[in-house]
Design a protein around this nucleic acid. Structure first.
Lengths: 223, 223
DNA sequence: ACAAAAGTGTTAAGAATACACCCATGT
DNA sequence: ACATGGGTGTATTCTTAACACTTTTGT
């Protein structure tokens, strides 16, 4: 049998989440090339032969976001999307990653790409099937913060219990009872109170907490 | 910039689960080609340009398992593995799928591949990183049967509550209390009792149940 | 004194767990 | 009669959920 194997185009796209103004936001860049030129899209790029998907992701991060993958405390592969024909010339498969971070200031090597964070409830029109990818990523994030300590990646080292609760509320999209939230989360015994307080207005200052371990751990019970 | 894009090799591998003798078993085939010739491996194959991963999976299923993907009530994409260098000539990315079925008798178009079900606790030496893929698939299956009605795909249309419990026990790998299991599962209101009984030995016959809906549904509470 | 957010207590409903028991069948 | 697995009841403990209350700050 005479048959020359030809591989489909392989790309990598990253969904970078960050909490800004107590809202869950995602990083988008403005496409400078066709197709979808001028439309907002997830930072992504080609995965060339010889590169692992993580290496391709690193290339995307350094060139289009201005940061190494290593700067993200939580990076998780999501799904291989192959519905959206990325390239009009043919079928493409995109491996997607979810990246969580706090305090990232993006800087593309190409300034016209203007990397910008958008709130999930105020997304612009998106290129390719990127709206579906973001939806998938949001659902995955929801299950991850429910079953692991993944929120730590979205918060600064020190934070108040109200910050923590607001993070959960922004991700889950619903209000939680303050007292019940605190009792439950503290019962996991993952936080330690620091001796510092946050003074943020005309009211009682809040105690600052930090995670005992800055790493992904399973939660005893789901949130 | 003069640059010709070259895509990595893309493959598809399937983890086919079935319950046999109250044990969770996975389908393996014996490799007829190098590398790993003569070693057991997951059914898999190349994903050629122009084919979606599901089309590539269909090709694998019809040629190496003797069944269409459509015969599997539950098919779920798992993860893109790119650690194992499938081909010694270069880097390869494998998209993996988990497929659940009941009563499958496999038949490869190439009889020397002898597709065979192996119990998860008695796997042979495996090619590539397939041991890691099976472990990943097992964990995913565990969360799926805990949060959805995915078990239905592993059971015949009619089954006893003991069969159902044994399925959960085989997947979770631990014993469950009969009374508590029944109360909880029946409280989901997903099963209906048929008017038939299963007579399986020198003891009281067991009532046969069926799922109201033969489809994947979320469970009210996790198992 | 008051507004605003921090932080706590209490109770009732619901779920999980452990364990003991009765029932219907073939031999 | 008895062994075997089918099928059920109940009490205890742990979680969840709702809601009301007190505390500490700046103005």
């Amino acid at each position: 049998m005479e048959y020359v194997y030809h591989a489909p185009t392989l790309t990598v796209d990253s969904v970078i989440f960050q909490l800004i103004d107590n809202k869950l936001q995602v990083l988008l860049i403005n496409r400078t090339n066709e197709p979808f030129r001028g439309t907002w899209a997830l930072p992504g790029g080609y995965n060339a032969a010889g590169d692992t998907t993580l290496q391709a992701l690193e290339r995307v991060m350094t060139t289009k976001v201005g940061t190494s993958v290593k700067a993200f405390p939580v990076v998780e592969q999501l799904y291989a999307f192959d519905t959206g024909a990325r390239d009009p010339r043919g079928h493409a498969v995109s491996i997607t990653y979810m990246c969580l971070i706090n305090g990232l200031v993006p800087a593309s090597s190409d300034a016209t790409q203007q990397p910008t964070f958008f709130a999930l409830d105020a997304l612009p029109k998106l290129a390719f099937d990127h709206a579906a990818i973001i939806k998938f990523a949001h659902e995955r994030l929801d299950t991850r913060v429910a079953s692991t300590t993944a929120v730590y990646a979205l918060l600064p080292k020190r934070f108040t219990l109200t910050h923590l609760q607001q993070a959960y509320e922004a991700i889950h999209g619903r209000q939680l009872d303050k007292c019940n939230f605190r009792k439950k989360f503290l019962s996991f015994d993952l936080l330690v109170a620091t001796d510092e307080y946050a003074q943020e207005g005309a009211h009682r200052p809040a105690m600052l907490y930090r995670f005992k371990e800055q790493k992904l751990q399973p939660l005893l019970r789901d949130f």
